[in-house]
Deep mutational scan, measured.
Amino acid sequence: TQTTHELTIPNNLIGCIIGRQGANINEIRQMSGAQIKIANPVEGSSGRQVTITGSAASISLAQYLINARLSSE
Rank of each mutant, 00 (worst) to 15 (best):
Q2M: 14
N12V: 05
I9E: 00
N11I: 06
I66E: 00
A56G: 10
Q63T: 12
I66Q: 00
Q35P: 02
V42K: 11
G54A: 00
S58K: 05
S71H: 04
T4Q: 09
G33R: 05
T4R: 08
E27G: 06
L70K: 04
A68C: 15
I38M: 05
N40T: 07
A23T: 14
Q2T: 15
I59T: 12
E73S: 15
T3D: 13
Y64K: 15
Q63I: 14
E27Q: 13
E6R: 15
P41G: 09
V50T: 00
R69G: 02
I36Y: 01
Q2I: 15
L13F: 09
T4D: 05
Q35M: 09
Y64R: 15
Q49M: 09
E6T: 15
S60T: 12
Q21G: 09
G22A: 06
L7D: 02
S60P: 02
N26G: 06
Y64H: 14
N67G: 09
S58V: 03
R29L: 04
A56Q: 14
G54E: 01
M31T: 10
S55N: 11
G33M: 02
M31S: 07
R69V: 03
N24V: 10
G19W: 01
K37P: 02
I25N: 00
S71R: 10
S46D: 15
I36S: 02
K37F: 04
I38N: 01
I18C: 02
G15M: 12
V42A: 10
T1V: 13
I25G: 03
A68S: 13
H5L: 15
I14D: 01
R69H: 04
Q49V: 13
A62G: 02
T53R: 12
N24D: 12
H5F: 05
G15F: 04
I66H: 15
G19A: 03
G33P: 00
G47V: 12
Y64T: 15
H5D: 05
Y64P: 05
A68K: 15
I9M: 05
S45T: 13
L13C: 07
N26V: 05
N11G: 07
I38F: 05
S60F: 09
T51P: 02
E27H: 09
N11Y: 03
L70T: 05
S60L: 05
S71Q: 07
Q63L: 14
T3K: 15
N24K: 14
L13Q: 15
I28V: 06
N11K: 07
A62Y: 04
M31H: 09
N40V: 06
S72P: 03
